[in-house]
Nucleic acid binder design. Sequence first.
DNA 1: CGATGTTACCGTCACTATGACAGTAATCAC
DNA 2: GTGATTACTGTCATAGTGACGGTAACATCG
Lengths: 235, 235
Amino acid sequence: MAQTAQFPADAVRPALAVDIVALTVRSRRLSVLLVRRLLEPFRGRLALPGGFALPGESPRQAAIRELAEEAGVAPPGHLEQLRTYGPEDRDPRGPVVSVAHLLLAPAWGDLASGGDAAAAAWVDVAAARGLAFDHDRILADGLERARAKLEYSALALAFIPAEFTIAQLRAVYEAVWGAALDARNFSRKILGSGIIQPAGLAGPGRPGRPARLFRVAPGLDPASAALNPPIIRPA
Amino acid sequence: MAQTAQFPADAVRPALAVDIVALTVRSRRLSVLLVRRLLEPFRGRLALPGGFALPGESPRQAAIRELAEEAGVAPPGHLEQLRTYGPEDRDPRGPVVSVAHLLLAPAWGDLASGGDAAAAAWVDVAAARGLAFDHDRILADGLERARAKLEYSALALAFIPAEFTIAQLRAVYEAVWGAALDARNFSRKILGSGIIQPAGLAGPGRPGRPARLFRVAPGLDPASAALNPPIIRPA
DNA sequence: CGATGTTACCGTCACTATGACAGTAATCAC
DNA sequence: GTGATTACTGTCATAGTGACGGTAACATCG
């Protein structure tokens, strides 16, 4: 029992990693950001973006850095911790604890190559199977989290740009839930929720009556704002 | 680039720990299981039960083992991962990643001493402040998770024994939320939700009309069953 | 120019869920 | 018995819900 406290000698010290489930909605379909691995293990397989944390980094900082390296930009949107996996039976190289994160963001296009992975790409979630490591399960957990959060929070707003139409917002719900929603009832609920504010009229250019534009209500944080009453996903 | 894949040389390897926010309801008050630390750092301070993971252990297994060591029993109730904290600025001995867990359970009495902590004890959450490490924050996160989960899931059932009265179940909600609920409306909602099943009549012994006993509906898992419609906490 | 198709928006209606509250039933203590 | 205590049942006005019919404003085509 030394006076200066030390770790127990037998403390487990796994490598610390992060993985990111980055979701977006492209042309009415839910997509996830994937990279192709250039190194072993699982070389050539698709995987979630991620990697090992650097000294002094928090998992959140590591997630942001990895996204910047593998996707070329400081990620927009909403980033939150998903859950933690490991350390056993995840990586043939040894014990790894991975703190998975969930990013909900508008689609961005500058997908650069970097790090130990080829250029990242958006992949339809329905086609994202057979991923490296335990990433199939992490993706499934991230999808379920996203689907559940849309019911009771304003997080659908994280998927779209600052100005948007109600149809765009509805398309987010329909893509994430994979179900059609009644446009009229959806408008009523969103407009009555107070989370959005009129922002002019959308310019013409497409057939049909021009839609009204909206933006997030001032002082409202989509990440923490509760949706009241909620919008429940259909069975 | 060796053919046999290895970890990056500069991979961070923090110690892996678990902490447990173990909540229960005792005499209509929400309580958390705390231990008094016998070793540095934070010697003498109250802390959440927890400790370092052993080789080959999952965080969940480590949480169950630590609860058994510090509280004397294999914990009943519902155990889930809460979130992960660290690795920086948590422990003066160095970087520690702690995977916090949330346990919702009926109160149990065999609180034994063990490990590097004095006997565990149930403490009213309103009095649980000034904990060691970042445990004040972990406790706050666990409380918020528990309060939110009671709205949309059947997890309140994890707090009470197999057979219970509706008043007991309502007492769980009132203790966790710190708010009074209308007994008549609560009964209507719970009975209409289909999550419980009649199980006879409570024996007399106390003043008042004897209450009906209920048990969890067959085939229903309180951890995953959705409460529909939800029971929203009052503002 | 008008006809047609497309998209967005507005309103109605029956039904359900909700909060608030009044009243009844069954026990215990005395 | 009386009163106190706890449990249970029912009512009612109002808000929220899903389903759906109709109207408004654009583009494109003949």
